[in-house]
């Protein structure tokens, strides 16, 4: 992999959904670069294509045309097996609804990406507890998701996204299910433990309260990236 290249490099990415014979253009020639060490937020109205774009960036959806390179590798040309492996090693996920496995305790949930990568369960759970300590939940590693508050569940989800040390973390509305304080805490945590010089973060959000945490913000509308700017104008607009 080429270290000089951006973490994510999308060129003319187009995605069209066929919904019962009707074609819907979700992405229409997206060009976007995300650098290593950068926290990029994707913002825009519902249906503008944010979720489709992070799905393509995360390698869980294929674009119809254009290219999307992650760390210099084109996911579209990878074999499905290689793509799975690439995803398992390089990408961490944080979801709006947390998507923790309800039957597993916090440590088991966090250890899932390591187990997928072939790490033995005992080793994976030890490592998971270490990461849970980093997010302030070391004492709650035995708790089931249902026994944790929304903010705590999102911390577990962050720990799960970090545990295998991925180079890209994609987050879908990570604060929208949380109250203001919890949301701020989560974003501070992100900044503190997730963002590193060799890792990029892409956050899809509607939540204007967290714009200030972004390095850059890409505004999307109707399948296009309308503009990419630093957080200052949008934060100022909010105030």
């Amino acid at each position: 992999m080429n270290e000089d290249k951006p973490a994510v490099c999308c060129r003319n990415v187009t995605k069209i959904y066929d919904t019962g014979g009707q074609k819907v253009t979700a992405l229409n020639g997206i060009n976007l670069d995300i650098a290593l060490g950068e926290l990029m937020m994707l913002v825009g109205p519902s249906g503008c294509g944010k979720t489709t774009l992070i799905s393509i960036i995360a390698g869980i959806l294929d674009q119809d045309s254009g290219s999307c390179e992650l760390f210099g590798e084109n996911l579209l040309t990878m074999s499905s097996q290689r793509k799975l492996q690439f995803r398992a090693q390089n990408i961490g996920f944080v979801f709006q609804a947390f998507n923790l496995l309800p039957a597993l305790n916090a440590a088991e949930n966090v250890s899932v990406p390591l187990i997928i990568n072939g790490v033995k369960r005992v080793t994976a759970e030890k490592k998971a507890i270490e990461v849970l300590e980093k997010v302030g939940l070391g004492a709650r590693w035995r708790s089931l998701p249902a026994q944790l508050s929304g903010g705590q569940q999102q911390r577990v989800a962050i720990a799960r996204a970090l545990v295998h040390n991925p180079r890209l973390i994609v987050c879908d509305e990570p604060t929208s299910a949380l109250d203001h304080t919890s949301g701020m805490n989560i974003m501070n945590l992100f900044k503190a433990v997730a963002l590193q010089h060799d890792r990029a973060l892409v956050v899809v959000t509607h939540d204007a309260r967290i714009f200030e945490f972004a390095d850059r913000i890409a505004e999307m509308d109707d399948g296009h990236v309308v503009q990419v700017q630093t957080n200052q104008p949008l934060v100022a607009q909010r105030h």
Binding site: A58, I60, Q81, L84, Q85, F86, R87, A88, Q89, I91, F93, F95, N99, L101, P102, V112, P113, I116, N117
Partner: peptide, 13 residues
């Protein structure tokens, strides 16, 4: 299904 989807997204074959 969503849980299986999460596992699939994380790289489970």
């Amino acid at each position: 299904l969503k849980q299986f989807g999460v596992l699939k997204a994380m790289g489970t074959s």
